[in-house]
Design a protein around this nucleic acid. Sequence first.
DNA 1: CGGACAATTGATCTACCTCAAAATTGGTGG
DNA 2: CCACCAATTTTGAGGTAGATCAATTGTCCG
Lengths: 251, 251
Amino acid sequence: MLQSRPSPLSELTRKLETHFRLTDEERQAIAALPHTLRELGPDQDMGREGDQPSQCCLVVEGYAHRHKTCSTGKRQIFSVHLPGEIPDLQSLHLHTLDHTLSTLSRAKVAFIPHQAIRNLCASYPRLCHALWRETLVDGAIFREWMMGIGRRGAVSRVAHFVCELVERMVAIGRSDRRTCAFPMTQAELADALGLSAVHINRTLQELRRTGLIRLSGATLTVLDWPGLMQAGEFDPAYLHQDKSSRQPALA
Amino acid sequence: MLQSRPSPLSELTRKLETHFRLTDEERQAIAALPHTLRELGPDQDMGREGDQPSQCCLVVEGYAHRHKTCSTGKRQIFSVHLPGEIPDLQSLHLHTLDHTLSTLSRAKVAFIPHQAIRNLCASYPRLCHALWRETLVDGAIFREWMMGIGRRGAVSRVAHFVCELVERMVAIGRSDRRTCAFPMTQAELADALGLSAVHINRTLQELRRTGLIRLSGATLTVLDWPGLMQAGEFDPAYLHQDKSSRQPALA
DNA sequence: CGGACAATTGATCTACCTCAAAATTGGTGG
DNA sequence: CCACCAATTTTGAGGTAGATCAATTGTCCG
């Protein structure tokens, strides 16, 4: 789509920069991280449950997701990851993967050795804390999903998910809160929200019927942001995007 | 119950020590952390959604939980915390609380200033990583709960919860995997597992009827550990207790 | 232009919810 | 030690959101 970005790692720089301004030295240290860039097709595994990886994956372009299938064959998707995120940063300290990490769509991914990240942390405490922080936001999103799956009805759950996706896309400059790429199928959405694919389909129809969104192919259009936020009981506080970078919602 | 432990902070030492052996210096640094000890009654808030705390809470004795109530009045409990844990460690980097932290039972809690922990991290990188790691295990538990709430039936969900509780109690030396304190009411269990209190009650009866557990008052007895694990599809890998400290299950 | 995958529809079923009342428990003060 | 209160647990009887199964239609891509 776009190849205007100088280095794959600049996605990471940009991400960390949303919380505080990096020094030139820090920026250079990130740019100097050794890495291997790979292009992956849709639904390719980057790490499987039980693996003991020695590197982390930075999503550079496209989307990733983490998930697990239980013995009854049902699958739960735990998270969706956008460019600039490192979905398996936890593997730096938890040596065995307790779930699987895969692409969602086609994606460009940079593999960075654990040791390089450890060195970075040792030399640049602020970067260490910034990475730690990223994993904490991850946790906050888990909690919010738990709330949705456990306590919200289907319409609210889907609306909330859409709000979160849009908000996060806006934060990385890939949405204007009006249109945004929608990287998953209805079956995947079902696995993320703890619903059946059939019910997701009917719920999406409901959201369209009430004029909140449009969804054609892989493109989502938000027709009524305030209405969507309300339907999803969405309060972006849990995303902890508390710096400049973000433009407030029009609502 | 027992006051044999020298300092409230020794609970933290012991917790961190389950992953690697601390040096004397590290142990002393932890013991020297400034803190305020407080005794709290059941269901007391230690931090509320929207707060910007300047200290962390170490659970010394008793139990805590994190939760949030959505606009429809339904409540979701995100986690339960045992002695030695710091439920709001994330507040070190996420400055606004996105949920509420409360006691479950009566509890003894040590409040430790953020700054003291930051200093500790700066001086002792290994401790910094150990704390980071704790927050990552937290995240792993969130994922597992998500899986339960989203994809498992009621019996499996409750059984899984019980397995996790027992396993974590064993890890801190408060259960022999046969008997253990059960710190929550059925209504709280319901809020943790995304079910109604009535359904929790019937599900517990089912677990008793099938001879897996006994539950009288606040004491849980596991009658059939392998059976319980199977009912809950429980695999403790996600708890990442990968050091000596633990005795393997008899099963 | 065909083939595979994704979305949609219809019909039936069930796991779990809600409401409401009764029974039990545990803690407290007399 | 007992009686009492409040909080839990338990029971019963419907009701419903969402699951499941099985086609059918639509869409994208090679």
